[in-house]
Design a protein around this nucleic acid. Structure first.
Lengths: 141, 141
DNA sequence: TTTGATGCAAACTTTTTGCAGGAAC
DNA sequence: GTTCCTGCAAAAAGTTTGCATCAAA
């Protein structure tokens, strides 16, 4: 988990200006485990910082994605964001919508095998698994 | 790979009507390896069958998804469709946009491990890997 | 003949863009 | 003071929906 100060420093070093809006967005992304959508980020940080527009959220997320400081995953036609940039599997609960991360040591191994088999140069993997979480699964057995 | 006749029979058995539009869509999906978008399906089959509207494509895709006769994957905010419903890894070339399938025997094993670790009931996995295909990769080394 | 399917147009959702004003440097 | 960023409003892109018409059964 990165610290706010580190991320802000990275942005400053790249020549980007540090604005209250950017701090609010980055701060929230680092603290949450929710894999929020742009809309959700916007609504949440508006409680604390009412002066952040949705388009600024989108523009900041683009910036952070480009600098590899956040990852984007797609769930049901909506982009969701995650400042935990280590490779992991996203587990999506099809009932309550929760997204959980799982570190999975064998991911790298799979990527290597696929690379060998396909002759692709693999840059990243996106692993989403869908199912029912521990709380919800009793309803679907 | 399923045959057109089988798929059409499945639909008929479920009580759905067999229309020229549905045949055109299903026929194209079975023949292509392109993982087309709805828009692309529409454009392509219009050459042969000019009387297919985009909303019918969407409605038919919804039907096929529901009946598990096609899978949907998201690439860059757009839904892409695939009649190859066996579990596999989708390899997306970040240069030319091609999507290739790879059967990967260890997928099931990974799913089992993740299920055990997370206590989730895993229903399906979506595995996309992004990189550069054999033709494009020389440009990115 | 009786549904269910089609196709248009309009609505909706998520994301992107242009630009004038404002804030960071 | 200069340049980059913000936020509005408008547009774009992808998808869904309502409804009158049409065709499969």
């Amino acid at each position: 988990m990165q610290q706010l100060e580190e991320l802000v420093a990275s942005l400053r070093e790249e020549g980007f200006r540090i604005t209250p809006q950017r701090i609010a967005i980055v701060d929230y992304l680092l603290k949450t485990e929710e894999h929020p959508s742009a809309e959700h980020i916007h609504k949440t940080i508006q409680k604390k910082y009412p002066m952040v527009s949705l388009s600024t959220v989108y523009k900041t997320l683009d910036l952070l994605k480009e600098k590899k400081l956040v990852n984007e995953i797609e769930v049901e036609g909506e982009a969701r964001f995650d400042a935990h940039t280590d490779e992991h599997i996203n587990l999506v609960c099809m009932n309550c919508g929760k997204i959980e991360d799982i570190d999975e040591d064998s991911l790298k191994e799979i990527q290597n095998r696929v690379a060998k088999k396909s002759k692709y140069l693999i840059v990243k993997g996106s692993f989403e698994m869908f199912g029912y979480c521990n709380n919800c699964k009793s309803k679907f057995n």
